[in-house]
Design a protein around this nucleic acid. Sequence first.
DNA 1: GTGCAACTTAAAGCCGACTTGAGGTCAAGC
DNA 2: GCTTGACCTCAAGTCGGCTTTAAGTTGCAC
Lengths: 182, 182
Amino acid sequence: MTAHPDARRGSGPHSADLLTIGQLADRSGLAASALRYYESLGLIQATRTAGGQRRYTRGTLRRIAFIRAAQRVGLSLDEARVALDRLPERPAPSGTEWSRVAESWQSRIDEQIAELELLKRKLSGCIGCGCLSLTRCALYNAGDRAGAAGPGARYLLTRDPAAGPEPVSPVADALGGPSEGR
Amino acid sequence: MTAHPDARRGSGPHSADLLTIGQLADRSGLAASALRYYESLGLIQATRTAGGQRRYTRGTLRRIAFIRAAQRVGLSLDEARVALDRLPERPAPSGTEWSRVAESWQSRIDEQIAELELLKRKLSGCIGCGCLSLTRCALYNAGDRAGAAGPGARYLLTRDPAAGPEPVSPVADALGGPSEGR
DNA sequence: GTGCAACTTAAAGCCGACTTGAGGTCAAGC
DNA sequence: GCTTGACCTCAAGTCGGCTTTAAGTTGCAC
């Protein structure tokens, strides 16, 4: 990135409706290197010019938006790829299909929110009051097994052991992944 | 890690109120290696036996709970260290002191929740409806920054800082229809 | 006093998501 | 046809947060 603001590649040279990697970078907000990386992971594809340069269809922007949203929801790029693979690419995903995915993400977001709210309660109940009782404090006794879950936050405080249905596998399986494992 | 459940080191041998690294590991849920790593970062300390083995006071558990909560809130270990350094260690932090910190975290948590809720709305408004309109879709045009904070949330949709008049419309045009090129 | 689990250190490895660098090629505007 | 910026590949580096490995030492029960 870091192109001069007025060097709008987006409207510049190059052919009609195929985007160069630089244009795609500008428009998606990702670095060109990231786009190549995504391609190496099979997240996006490009056709090539005779000279070997990448050209992207505009639909790629949609895929990228999807990927970024997936990350935002807490999926890894690999999980995002799996989710993308389940969407028809050729006939362009229908609203229903997007909806199905979006819906599973909703619940994932809800989980995250719930977890944060739990943490909030714990904080005011434990740290907040200064007790941090070793025998009773939820912060200690959360029973946290803390799998390496999200990218950013590796170990969770975890939810209450009594809080019902176990850790719940990631959205991946809400997306229908039969495989799973991880 | 993963000691047999009944080999409770926690109640085993060793001296009265100092914990060995194994005991601390069991009780905190962290691996011993992680505890050594934390020590190397200055997050926790230990006294040593004549033979050089670490012994921890129980207060260390509190520090660890603090650290884990900090991570959960989205702080790095380094930030956690800074926060810890601001708390008196010798006279044991008072409730007020914990509260002050906890309070700042509350708002941080609130921010994260707000962000997630925003994402949720965006998802149902954009992906959910299947539009993903490039000119209008909030997923593309979102202006939220918030840094790589959340547990699961590393990269946000969007980048685009202040930038003001936002001349660089992210992904404009194209794709007005689901059909799109090709 | 011996046996053995639990401990010690330093250095290296790993994962995810990229970025950076080196060395070279393409394509478009003049 | 030349220049120049955008592009190419492949390998290696980065960062945070740990874990693993190797080789050696401690400490407690018996």
